[in-house]
Amino acid sequence: MIHEQGNYVPGDGNSSGSKDKAPIHPFNRELLTAINMLCISWDIIPESGLESIIKFTNNKSTDPNLNGIEWFNKIVAKDARKRTLRQMIDELRETNDIKEMRFDLMNQYLNEKGFENYIR
């Protein structure tokens, strides 16, 4: 299981038919990667809150979804074992081949705003 944090363009696939969308903002790329990793760690399908963050982020791909990161951070804080996202990914890495992922922009934003950071 190797995840690429590349230049994903929402809706850019064989069935989309649209090739003129701007590349996703790096902040949003980190957010979507983080959501995917949380879903893998918790073995869930993104519903309600997470699904809303994904849809909004994809629709506004060139603008950083700052509210989305704050909301996502609160969701991660609800981990039953009180782990950060980084700790969850490190646990997954013990039994899976997972590329190193960095969430520098998200961490910087949370730290600058003074939020308790559950991403790291």
Rank of each mutant, 00 (worst) to 15 (best):
E116N: 03
D12K: 14
I75S: 12
K74H: 11
N65F: 07
V76E: 09
L66E: 13
R102Q: 14
G68L: 15
K113P: 01
E47G: 08
D43E: 14
L105R: 15
I98W: 10
I53K: 12
W71M: 10
T84W: 06
A77T: 00
E4Y: 10
I40F: 13
F72K: 15
D97G: 01
G11S: 13
I24Y: 05
T62R: 14
L38G: 00
F72E: 02
S18T: 01
L31I: 01
K19R: 14
S16H: 13
R93Y: 12
S18M: 03
E70I: 07
N96D: 06
K19P: 00
N65R: 06
T95I: 06
S48P: 01
M106F: 03
P26H: 12
H3V: 07
E100W: 04
T57H: 13
I54V: 06
A77R: 14
E47H: 05
L50N: 04
D104S: 12
N36R: 11
W42A: 09
D43W: 09
A80T: 06
E94D: 02
D97R: 10
M88E: 02
W42L: 07
G68R: 13
I54S: 03
G11D: 09
I35P: 02
D63W: 06
E112C: 09
Y8R: 15
D97M: 07
N58Y: 12
L38F: 08
I98N: 15
I75W: 04
M37T: 02
A77S: 15
N14V: 08
R120M: 10
H3L: 09
K82P: 00
C39F: 07
N36C: 08
R102A: 14
K19C: 10
K78W: 00
E4A: 09
N14Y: 12
N96A: 11
L85A: 05
L92V: 06
R29A: 06
K78Y: 03
H3R: 04
N73T: 05
G13Q: 03
E70L: 11
E47D: 05
C39Q: 03
R93H: 14
S52K: 14
L38I: 10
L105I: 03
E4I: 07
P64M: 09
G6K: 11
N111Q: 15
P64C: 08
D104C: 02
E112T: 03
G11P: 09
N14Q: 09
D12E: 07
S41Q: 01
M88V: 02
I24W: 11
G6E: 09
K74F: 08
K99W: 05
K99T: 14
A22N: 07
L92A: 05
K78C: 02
S48Q: 06
N65S: 11
A34H: 08
D63Q: 12
N107C: 04
T84N: 08
Y8P: 00
L110A: 08
R81N: 11
G13E: 10
Y118W: 14
K99H: 08
K78R: 14
I35T: 03
G114N: 09
E91A: 13
K113H: 05
D90Y: 01
D20E: 06
